[in-house]
């Protein structure tokens, strides 16, 4: 049984389908990341799927916006997609991840602003 079968309710399947359509437009490396995110969220999920939708949507938006910007996927998610998903759904270590994102934000800003000079 895969993730899509697990999520019940036809409106939700429709929502998921729409997400999939949008994901198809992503560059290849982003699509790979997207699939990994979905699979990882599924592993983490003992949920019905409905409360998972916001995570899926915000992940997709993150990918869309950064892809349009031409950033590399590593720069967006780091090399640990599994960790990213754990952090999203608040598994153990989620707090550490938020700290990591904070550091990434400040480090990126420092590095990129430094590059301007």
């Amino acid at each position: 049984m895969n993730f899509f079968e697990r999520i019940t309710g036809s409106d939700m399947t429709k929502e998921m389908k729409a997400f999939e359509e949008r994901a198809k437009l992503l560059p290849a490396e982003y699509q790979a990341a997207w699939k990994e995110i979905i699979n990882n969220l599924w592993i983490h999920g003992d949920f019905t799927g409905r409360n998972l939708m916001p995570f899926i949507e915000s992940s997709l938006e993150l990918l869309e916006v950064t892809a349009a910007d031409g950033q590399s996927i590593e720069e967006v998610l780091g090399d640990d997609i599994k960790g990213f998903c754990s952090a999203l759904v608040g598994d153990e270590g989620a707090k550490t991840y938020r700290d990591k994102w904070r550091d990434q934000l400040n480090n990126n800003v420092a590095r990129k602003l430094g590059g301007l000079k």
């Binding site: 916001p54 949507e57 938006e61 910007d69 967006v76 938020r98 990126n108 990129k112």
Partner: peptide, 20 residues
């Protein structure tokens, strides 16, 4: 632009409901 984009990326990850 640099700071805005990094902020935006961070916010998407943290996911405050206003973003939706």
């Amino acid at each position: 632009q640099i700071v805005y984009k990094e902020m935006q990326k961070y916010l998407f990850k943290v996911g405050p409901v206003e973003l939706g």
